[in-house]
Design a protein around this nucleic acid. Structure first.
Lengths: 154, 154
DNA sequence: TATTGTTATACTCTATAACTATA
DNA sequence: TATAGTTATAGAGTATAACAATA
């Protein structure tokens, strides 16, 4: 069997844990879990309210998890639900002023952490790594959506 | 703020989710969670019994989580605890014959998944990516252990 | 006293199914 | 009928502190 240390999932986990070590401490100081921050971060990045389904897909959270996370954030006054007039089944979420303020207070500290990572690893090298991670994701999605794997048998 | 999609933690998560999508289905068919498999996999990779502390560190599991996971695997007859004569505080864990058999039955299916990933992304490219992931981990650990960051001010 | 590991406790997330309301 | 989201339920992992046994 492929050695434990040479496992791709482990390599990805190891790298992510090393990176998240700093970020988790920052988020804990602001009373946010990693998953809650993923939602807040996505909303802070968007100009418009985002539908539950889209949030779930982009944050890799299951719908029931997201429902609870949004309920929690809503109770804390950080996000607000909004009905979609055109489709009453759907709900969109957006940050409140408090939610925006929280995101804006975390952002600069997040950038400081990011800067130390770039300093330790190299900015160009980090960009290249991110590009390859995205390419891997794209390649696997492409593979999953093409049943006959075009080009697999040259 | 750095766009959500350009976040390093998200890029690592996205790539890992894409990879784990296949592996999780495989593990679920064998009644193992991702974390349980990390433990079994590590033990299968080792010639000798491994101490709880070392397992925890290498699988990124907290001690209380590991205690429960090992208890679960032990109840299912997949692993066995062993006392360390030289140090009665410590406990080492090893696979039973059933545990070995389970690992050996999963391994070839895991390699099949791995092969499809290599086919989709390229073997050389995947090796390079793994190398960079390890280097990132190493760079961040190095940074964390050196307080005065030698070379940070050239 | 410090270390190794377990127990206690509370919370969060995962995962699947069943359900509601709407389209 | 299909879709979007919630509710129900069970289980597993996270995180911190307190603890026991041993070094």
């Amino acid at each position: 069997m492929r050695p434990f240390s040479a496992s791709l999932p482990m390599a990805l986990l190891r790298a992510r844990e090393a990176v998240m070590d700093d970020f988790r401490r920052l988020l804990a100081r602001h009373g946010l879990t990693e998953q809650q921050w993923r939602v807040v971060r996505l909303l802070a990045d968007s100009d418009e309210p985002v539908a539950m389904g889209e949030i779930a897909a982009r944050t890799f959270l299951l719908a029931p998890s997201l429902t609870r996370i949004v309920a929690n954030l809503s109770d804390r006054g950080l996000v607000e639900r909004r009905a979609v007039p055109a489709d009453q089944r759907r709900a969109t979420i957006e940050l409140t002023a408090d939610g925006e303020a929280l995101a804006q207070s975390i952002a600069p500290q997040s950038e400081v952490i990011y800067a130390t990572i770039e300093a330790a690893f190299g900015q160009r090298r980090l960009d290249d790594l991110m590009h390859e991670l995205d390419a891997l994701d794209a390649a696997l999605r492409e593979r999953d959506t093409s049943d006959d794997a075009p080009g697999a048998t040259p």
